[in-house]
């Protein structure tokens, strides 16, 4: 690509000429967008509504849209210790995964972004390749190894697995952020006598905060949402995270729809909050993770 036209979006818009040529097309755009928005949001709203229904309203035919909300399901899952067990486990695992993978991955990313050494591109390839690994190929040996080291059913096991799984991605995104910080800045600091570590701390870290925040959110969500490893490496409330815990509400002995949807609603909160209030960061993580 020869020139990036980030300077004149208006011009492109005019040239692309999809919108607003005629009021008809404008209306068409809005009606399609409204339909799509409905499809995107309705299921989430329906889940929330279900979590506020009692058993009779859940099964009611025709389905009821207006009903007397009850917090019974939330009360029940609070009483069974859902929050202090599974929510806390999820939070602990996700937070520690973020911390560990950012520290390890940050160093790796810095090294990849700043130094040319033999194996740099090979490492880049390895990191990419490890993104291709399907979870099923790792979950079996990890289960066996964790069992050997008596780590099954611990949050540690999940943190280790999630860190390793996210690390390539973390390195990749952070590397791209770091590469966009001119190396002259830290070199200047180093010429002024600062050590490299100090330069990193004083110059690079503050400048890459947005990148770190984006990566942290991304890693957090990825760990928070992770199911396959959590399902097979943990078994009891001491270590299980929320995605696994909610499957407990779908047993052969019955589906507790109210509790299930209440728990699922709680589980969705961080993602939705990030998505609504920090979409910019997530998007930048997404795009940088995928495209250079």
């Amino acid at each position: 690509m020869i020139t990036k036209s980030s300077g004149n979006p208006g011009k492109i818009l005019k040239l692309l000429k999809l919108p607003s040529r005629s009021p008809f097309i404008g209306a068409l755009r809005y009606s399609i967008l409204i339909i799509l928005t409905f499809i995107a949001l309705f299921p989430l709203i329906w889940l929330f509504m279900t979590s506020l229904k009692n058993e009779i309203d859940i099964f009611a035919r025709p389905p009821v849209l207006v009903f007397r909300p009850t917090f019974q399901a939330y009360r029940y899952i609070a009483k069974m210790g859902f929050l202090e067990k599974y929510f806390l486990n999820s939070l602990t695992v996700a937070t520690l995964t973020v911390v560990v993978s950012l520290v390890i991955g940050g160093l790796g990313a810095y090294s990849l972004a700043r130094f040319r050494f033999t194996g740099n591109s090979f490492l880049a390839f390895i990191i990419l390749a490890s993104r291709m690994l399907p979870g099923v190929v790792l979950v079996i040996p990890l289960y066996l190894l964790m069992q050997r080291f008596k780590l099954t059913n611990t949050r540690t096991a999940l943190i280790i697995a999630h860190t390793a799984f996210n690390l390539p991605f973390v390195v990749w995104i952070l590397r791209s952020y770091l590469a966009s910080i001119p190396r002259e800045l830290e070199e200047a600091a180093m010429i002024d006598g600062a050590s490299r570590l100090l330069a990193i701390r004083k110059v690079i870290a503050p400048l890459s905060t947005p990148g770190i925040v984006a990566t942290a959110m991304f890693t957090f969500l990825s760990s928070w949402n992770e199911f396959l490893f959590a399902l097979n490496l943990t078994f009891s409330p001491e270590a299980q995270t929320m995605p696994v815990a909610v499957t407990g509400f779908i047993s052969a002995r019955g589906i507790a729809w109210g509790e299930l949807s209440a728990a699922a609603t709680i589980m969705l909160l961080p993602g939705l909050l990030f998505g609504i209030f920090a979409r910019k960061y997530i998007v930048s993580g997404l795009t940088r993770g995928a495209i250079k």
Binding site: A40, W46, P243, A264, L272
Partner: peptide, 14 residues
Amino acid sequence: FLPVVTTPVAVGII
């Protein structure tokens, strides 16, 4: 954008 940040397990439930 929101569906992409939802937990797959919750999506299955929904």
